[in-house]
Amino acid sequence: MLHLEDSELLSMFSDENSQNYAFNLIVKKYQQKIYWHIRRMVIDHDDANDVTQNTFIKAWKGLETFKQEAQLYTWLYRIATNESINFLNKKRKVLLLPLIDVERELSNKLEADAYFSGNVIQKKLQKALLQLPEKQRIVFNLKYFEEMKYEDMSTILNTSVGALKASYHIAVKKIEEYLKTH
């Protein structure tokens, strides 16, 4: 597979003749990162699949007006994060569930998920993550699993680096506490 720089992909996309091909390359380049980011948020594979597809459809619609000064990958992460949060909010509205019950529902899904192959401690970590507020969970996932720089995270979440570090620190403390007590 071709590994082109984002700037090359974007200039290909701006040409109508190579637009579809360029977008296909963008999807192939980022699909896994975006999917896993979404999957950690929504837990279920089918939901993650829907949210991933919506993310790329939105990206396709917005790419024409995308400002090239911004990084393509942080922009895609931003769309993915917003789509995941919207998906969970919609779920709350449809099921008329408070915040905690949605996380409990996700925790139950984790138990029955055919596509979860983690061991007991990994399952416990995922359950601990579901106890966290949405934003802390996103920060923890991006830092711990994806090893993303705080600066990039700051662009995606529109939050200062200091606040993100504090958020990660609080998340870690809460997870430690959960792992000790459960």
Binding site: R39, H45, Q53, Y115, Q122, Q126, F145
Partner: peptide, 25 residues
């Protein structure tokens, strides 16, 4: 947390990432 590790515990159906770009297209 180091004892938990950073390995991804989630899985996807076989060939999922081969078919995803087609579904999106």
């Amino acid at each position: 947390l180091y004892s938990v590790g950073k390995e991804n515990p989630f899985r996807v159906p076989e060939n999922y990432f081969d078919t995803l770009p087609i579904s999106i297209a």
